[in-house]
């Protein structure tokens, strides 16, 4: 049996002084080593879920378990050591005065001895390909570089789970590729569990599993192929489908007997020419 990294059961959450629950009866499970994308419109509760998982917010009711450990006041700090999160705004999570100080911040908090810290900072910075920026001040880094530093700060802590809360949404295409590339490498190398919150469905296509949020509830859950076959339903909840999926849906409506719900351009091309040959 595969190990479950995160398990959420009947989770409810309400912000103080708000009339409605921001999270309503959410349940899901994430396996160890899985890449899960959580998608949904603005305000659908994605960030709230991320904060609940990190124990930064306290649920109204429901259960959160991380590697079979129940999240509560006592376990919160040991669970936080197993999880890292990268937030949306590159500037508002950079604490250190230089790159190396920032990467070391989490290690300092956890009381890691200095010799070990130096090693870990060095290896973390290499894994995101920013060795030559070790002494650089944040002011002189691009958004993508800052996010890679944030990732380095997370992996220096050697967590089992990394959460990306729209970590690429404020970046240009190049910064985006850099960050996603760094994460893909990590996933392969350390068999890390990745929870990627995004409203970029192109990015979500890379995931093993997708969870679609709508107004604080999970609307559906499945592989990207299953999710993208929902078509119009996704557009109804204001999600912008990837280009290939849009074309596929249009072609289907035009009467082409397309079978698979492959989200890649290559898959579509292959299917089209085989269709043409079989005619």
């Amino acid at each position: 049996m595969e190990e479950i990294a995160v398990s959420v059961e009947n989770l409810f959450f309400q912000y103080p002084n708000q009339p409605n629950d921001a999270i309503r009866n959410v349940s899901f499970q994430i396996k160890k080593g899985e890449w899960v994308a959580i998608v949904g419109h603005n305000g659908s509760g994605k960030s709230t879920i991320a904060k609940l998982l990190m124990g930064l917010l306290k649920p109204k009711s429901g259960i959160i378990k991380v590697f079979d450990q129940l999240l509560n006041e006592e376990t919160i700090w040991s669970i936080r050591k197993r999880m890292g999160i990268v937030f949306q705004n590159p500037d508002n999570q950079f604490v250190g005065t230089t790159v190396q100080d920032d990467i070391a911040f989490g290690l300092e908090n956890n009381g890691v001895p200095r010799e070990q810290m130096i090693e870990r900072v060095k290896s973390a910075i290499q894994q995101v390909g920013m060795e030559e920026f070790l002494l650089r001040e944040p002011h002189y880094l691009s958004g993508g570089q800052k996010q890679r530093v944030a990732i380095a700060g997370v992996i220096a802590l050697q967590p089992d789970i990394i959460i990306l809360d729209e970590a690429t949404s404020m970046l240009d295409p190049r910064g985006r590729r850099e960050v996603i590339g760094a994460i893909e490498k990590l996933k392969v190398k350390h068999h890390m569990t990745v929870i990627s919150i995004t409203h970029d469905l192109e990015e979500a296509m890379k995931a093993d599993k997708m969870i679609v949020m709508n107004r604080g509830e999970t609307m559906s859950e499945g592989t990207p192929q299953q999710i993208f076959s929902l078509g119009e339903k996704l557009e109804e909840i204001r999600l912008d489908l990837p280009f290939v999926i849009k074309i596929r849906n249009e072609l289907k409506q035009a009467g082409l007997p397309l079978q698979l719900n492959d989200a890649s351009l290559e898959g579509l091309v292959n299917e089209l020419w085989t269709l043409y040959l079989n005619k």
């Binding site: 890292g84 604490v95 908090n109 802590l157």
Partner: peptide
């Protein structure tokens, strides 16, 4: 946001 990020990093 910074305070939340710091807490998330174990501060």
């Amino acid at each position: 946001e910074l305070a939340i990020a710091m807490e998330a990093r174990g501060y």
